[in-house]
Amino acid sequence: PEAADLRALSRHLYEAYLKYFPLTKAKARAILSGKTGDNAPFVIHDMKSLMEGEQFINCKQLPNQEHQPQTSHSGMDAVELRFFQSCQSRSAEAVREVTEFAKSIPGFIDLDLNDQVTLLKYGVIEVLIIMMAPLMNKDGTLISYGQIFMTREFLKSLRKPFCQMMEPKFEFSVKFNVLELDDSDMALFLAVIILSGDRPGLMNVKPIEQLQETVLHSLELQLKLNHPDSLQLFAKLLQKMTDLRQIVTDHVHLIQLLKKTEIDMCLHPLLQEIMKDLY
């Protein structure tokens, strides 16, 4: 009966994952391997294709962007900023998706509300970085719900510090993708990350650790059944959590640097909330 409960938990989290995350790994891999026929993504590989591709990119206006002087947003120098702003909008939307997913983890909404906030504050960027991995290969990444493929070389060619933002994620993703997790494995792994009992400022750690332990058991069983030939996959996956924390720390420092150096940049209020006093 215990194993049956763990399988039920795995199914539940997989269903929630499918419900809240529009671009699954299965779909992303189909796009990346050219199995979607006529629906091949638009490729952005230089400034010209970036400008052509901008119409595809979800570029909702940021709430406080309308008060920015428009003159400073023209010209080639502003392309990076404009692209960065649309990345922010998508990230804020993704935070909402992750929050809904977190709320679907059994027991999460019964935790102390302050602790729910802390778990999301510290977990959400880690989750977003893990979720980038299925969208990436060594040559580039899908963006904009899979409508666009942006090359790694193009991202590296942006001016500093924008060119430094994605390269660590590519390095991590290429290694992470070797593990060949599928969407049902990912759902459990994301829940494990969210339920980390060592986040700073948690008030009631015990119930969080208890929830995480159950999800960890479910993940271990899932990996044994789903990847019977992949030795030590569970241990290898847990080791990724250490690398992930370093990537998030570096990412947050880079954003803080951007905030100081890019006078025209406005950070989305939700992302600002998350990154304030984070690391």
Binding site: N114, L120, E273, I274
Partner: peptide, 21 residues
Amino acid sequence: LKEKHKILHQLLQNSTSPVDL
């Protein structure tokens, strides 16, 4: 903590309609 994280808090509390981001 809730005061400093109003949007996150709102996202957590809002069970149906997504907050206008």
